[in-house]
Computed example of a mutant assay.
Amino acid sequence: MKSLLLKFSAIVLTLSLSSLSDTKQNEKKQSFQGKAYYLSKAKMNLGTWGARLSEGQKKEIEARLKNRLQKSYVLTFNKEESFFSEEDQLDAMSGATDSWGKNFAPGDQYKNVKTNSQIQNQEFYGKNFLVNDNLQPIEWVLGKETKQIGDYMCFKATASIPTNELTWFNFSWSKLRDSNPKETDTIQAESKAVEIAMTEVEAWYTPQIPVSHGPMEYWGLPGLILEVSAGETTMLCSKIVMNPEEKMEIKAPEKGTQVTKMEYQEIISKKMKEFRDNRSGRRRG
């Protein structure tokens, strides 16, 4: 009987120590927390159509599109998790929020580097989606170049990432055309399928903040990413607050229809095709 009690006591003690260890790990994870503030700037690309415009017309368009070309974000992070969201800003001309642009803008994003998971809330024409998928795989090439960003020494890293993987929440008519080729264009379509558009990415990270987080789809470096340039867009960290007095619980978005990134792209393409066909039908009528 005494032996049985000793075994039972040992089991209880082991479970208690395990529970205490888990509690301490969670407390440690939550106690190490930071907030990074980013400013995103994109160059205005008007293509061949823009060549016909005067400098005055270009400046007017740029002023109207300012809230789409310049955006502010906040990344809250601990050792394993991060939450990335855009700060609301008013339209430069009307004083209203950009409701049309929000249909194709990245929503609130939760990343967990330990579980390799990403959950992002996307709103598309009044309907909420919960895009649940793996983190974007990135094969970083670490360089030796350094530069100072604020109080932090940063190192350079580069990567080549499929463009469609970086812009899965967005839409373009070219994507729709490429996904619905005509039967007579079979050979050309097969040729396109082999040619995957890639985006060259340049990132600067600091080992002084030893977490694998970063803004948007970027992560996986041995330090917080403070600057990243991809295509026409550059995102730069303007302020970092480590271990703020007011702790924020980092939680994944929970409301919305669960889909994968690919399923979400299919939904957008289908709805935009319906939108286009309905407009064409009204014109013919």
Score class of each variant (00 low, 15 high):
227 E>A: 06
152 Y>A: 02
89 Q>C: 01
282 R>H: 04
150 G>K: 05
262 M>L: 15
125 Y>S: 04
93 M>C: 02
170 N>D: 14
160 S>P: 00
120 Q>G: 02
141 V>N: 14
182 K>S: 12
33 Q>S: 08
173 W>Y: 12
122 Q>C: 06
198 M>V: 07
125 Y>N: 07
188 Q>W: 14
149 I>T: 06
271 K>L: 15
91 D>M: 09
46 L>H: 08
198 M>L: 13
66 K>M: 12
35 K>H: 06
43 K>A: 13
150 G>C: 07
193 A>I: 04
264 Y>W: 11
56 G>C: 02
239 K>Y: 14
263 E>W: 04
182 K>P: 00
263 E>H: 02
138 I>E: 06
192 K>H: 13
100 W>D: 09
152 Y>S: 02
256 G>H: 08
229 S>G: 01
269 S>D: 10
276 R>Q: 12
29 K>W: 06
210 P>W: 08
88 D>Y: 07
70 Q>I: 14
116 N>I: 01
228 V>P: 03
110 Y>I: 03
86 E>C: 04
197 A>Q: 08
169 F>H: 12
241 V>P: 00
202 E>C: 04
178 D>Q: 13
64 R>L: 06
8 F>I: 15
49 W>D: 10
240 I>Y: 01
133 D>P: 00
169 F>T: 03
84 F>H: 03
192 K>L: 14
154 C>G: 09
68 R>I: 03
211 V>W: 01
25 Q>H: 09
103 N>F: 07
110 Y>E: 01
130 L>R: 04
275 F>M: 09
9 S>I: 15
273 K>S: 10
72 S>N: 15
183 E>K: 15
165 E>N: 09
2 K>W: 03
168 W>P: 03
267 I>K: 09
89 Q>H: 13
102 K>I: 07
208 Q>H: 10
153 M>Y: 07
